[in-house]
Deep mutational scan, measured.
Amino acid sequence: MGFKLLSKLLVYLTASIMAIASPLAFSVDSSGEYPTVSEIPVGEVRLYQIADGVWSHIATQSFDGAVYPSNGLIVRDGDELLLIDTAWGAKNTAALLAEIEKQIGLPVTRAVSTHFHDDRVGGVDVLRAAGVATYASPSTRRLAEVEGNEIPTHSLEGLSSSGDAVRFGPVELFYPGAAHSTDNLIVYVPSASVLYGGCAIYELSRTSAGNVADADLAEWPTSIERIQQHYPEAQFVIPGHGLPGGLDLLKHTTNVVKAHTNRSVVE
C-alpha cells in the first residue's frame, strides 16, 4: 500500500471513529477524501466538511520552486461564519470567499490569524475590503508590521502568557507558548472536538522541520505538551499544512522538532 493511500485511509478511519463516538456532533463529509496538494491548482481553494458547521479550507501556493498546501478553518456561528487564517495570499483568499459563498452561503463576518507569517495573514486586506472584521493577538499584529505583512485590524486580548485561553464565538483560542513562531495560536472547536494546530503542528508525513527561522526550538516541545494537557479530548487535529489526523500529530511534531534540534547540535 502506497504512503499517500495509507495517509488518506488514516484520515478516513479517524473521521469514521469520530462519527461513531459522537453521532450528534459529527456529520463528516462523505463526498470524498481530504484534498491534497496535487489536486488543488494554485489560485483555487477546496472546502472539506469535518463536522456539522465545521470545515477546513485548503489552498496551495508556490514557494521556492515548489507547491505547498495550506489549511485553515471555518466555523459556523449562528447565521454567520468565523474564518481562521487566510488562504495564503490575496488571490487565494478572494477564491476562498467565493467558494464559501458557493458552498455554504453564509457571510464571513470575523477572521482570526493564528500567527504573523504570510500563509496566515496574506489576504487580510481582501477580507477587510469584503467587510470582514480581522483579528490577531497584539504580538501577531506587531510582528506582521515588522515583517511588512498585512496586519489584522483588531487585537485579541488575554493571550499574552503561555497557557492563556479565551473564548471567541464558537471557538476557544489558546496560546501554548512559542513553537513554530513566538505568537502562534491554537484554535479548538469544543462542539466538535476539532483542534486546529496551525503551523505549530505537523502532518504525519512530514519528517523535516522546514521553516524554523522564527521558531523557538527549545520551547516548542513544552508548548505541545500544554496543548495535549489542555485538549486531551480532541479527536480531529488539523495541521497548518497537509493531512489531518488525531492527537498523534502532536507527538510526531515533537519528535521531528527534537530530531532537528539534535542534528543542529551535532553539526
Rank of each mutant, 00 (worst) to 15 (best):
L156N: 01
V126A: 08
R226S: 05
W55C: 04
V112K: 04
G43E: 08
D118C: 05
P69I: 15
D125K: 08
L13T: 15
Y135A: 01
D125H: 10
I104C: 00
Y12F: 10
W220N: 03
R120Q: 02
N92F: 00
E39Y: 11
L97Y: 01
S113C: 06
N92D: 03
L185P: 03
G131A: 07
Y188R: 00
S162D: 10
L97N: 01
D77V: 04
G198T: 05
A209Y: 05
D79N: 13
G197T: 03
F168N: 01
Q61T: 09
T93V: 00
D119S: 01
L96N: 01
D79Q: 10
S27R: 13
V108N: 03
M18P: 07
L81K: 01
E80P: 01
I238H: 00
I50A: 06
A179R: 02
R206F: 08
R120Y: 01
M1H: 02
G32Y: 14
P232Q: 09
L6G: 11
V11E: 08
K8P: 01
N262G: 12
A259I: 10
E145C: 08
A213M: 13
H180E: 01
G43N: 10
T182W: 10
V266K: 14
I227Y: 02
S27K: 11
S16E: 08
A259S: 13
S205D: 13
P176S: 04
K258N: 11
I17Y: 12
L24F: 14
G122A: 10
P239K: 01
Q229H: 12
R142K: 15
A21V: 14
V265I: 12
P221V: 11
G148A: 07
I186A: 07
G53F: 08
S264Y: 09
F168Q: 02
Y48A: 14
L81I: 11
V45Y: 02
G78P: 04
D216L: 06
S208V: 13
E39M: 12
Q49E: 12
F236P: 00
G242P: 04
V212W: 05
T14W: 03
G246M: 05
S205R: 08
A215K: 05
S22Y: 10
A21C: 15
S139L: 13
G163S: 07
I17Q: 07
A94S: 14
V54T: 07
A25T: 13
Y135I: 02
L185M: 06
I20M: 12
F26G: 14
R128M: 12
W88C: 02
D118Q: 08
E267N: 10
Q228E: 12
S38G: 11
P221M: 09
T261S: 12
V194R: 00
E147G: 11
N92V: 01
S113K: 02
P107W: 05
P23V: 11
G43Y: 07
E150I: 04
A215F: 03
A136R: 03
A111C: 08
L143E: 03
L249I: 05
S27A: 15
L9A: 14
S62I: 06
S162K: 14
S137I: 04
V108Q: 00
G169L: 04
A90D: 14
G78W: 07
T60L: 14
E39T: 13
G198S: 07
G210P: 06
E101R: 14
L83G: 01
E203M: 03
Y48R: 09
P107L: 08
A130M: 12
G89M: 00
E267W: 09
M1K: 05
L143A: 07
H230P: 05
T134V: 04
G148S: 07
S161W: 10
P35R: 07
Y34L: 09
Q103H: 15
V189A: 05
W55L: 02
G131Q: 07
S193H: 12
E44V: 10
S160I: 11
L195W: 01
G197W: 02
T114L: 00
P244L: 06
S193A: 13
G32C: 07
V266C: 05
R46H: 08
G169Y: 05
I100P: 01
L9C: 15
L156T: 04
N71H: 02
A129M: 11
L97W: 02
G43I: 02
L10Y: 15
L47N: 03
L195I: 08
D214Q: 08
V42C: 08
T253N: 02
S16G: 15
R76G: 07
G158A: 07
V132F: 03
N255V: 12
H180S: 00
R142P: 03
H252F: 01
V28K: 08
S205K: 10
G210S: 05
F174G: 01
S70N: 05
T60D: 03
N262V: 11
T14N: 08
T134K: 01
R76I: 08
L24S: 14
S181Q: 04
I58V: 15
A51H: 07
R206V: 12
V112P: 04
L10Q: 15
V171I: 10
V75H: 03
L127W: 00
G89I: 02
T109L: 09
E150F: 03
H154I: 09
S70T: 06
L243I: 15
V28N: 12
V67N: 15
W220V: 00
E145V: 09
G72I: 01
M18G: 13
V171Q: 02
T134I: 02
H115C: 00
L204Q: 11
G105N: 11
R263I: 14
P69K: 08
P170D: 03
Y34S: 08
H230Y: 09
I50T: 06
G245D: 05
D85S: 00
F3L: 08
A234H: 03
G43D: 09
T134E: 00
P69L: 15
R263P: 14
S27V: 12
V189L: 05
V112Y: 03
L10W: 07
A234C: 03
V121K: 01
E99R: 13
E225Q: 13
K91S: 15
R167T: 12
R110N: 15
E225T: 11
E219Q: 10
P69F: 11
A259E: 11
T140G: 03
N71E: 00
S137E: 01
E203P: 06
E225F: 11
A144W: 02
E33F: 09
A209R: 09
E101G: 12
F236S: 10
A15G: 09
T207I: 11
S161H: 13
A165G: 11
A218G: 13
V124Y: 03
N71R: 02
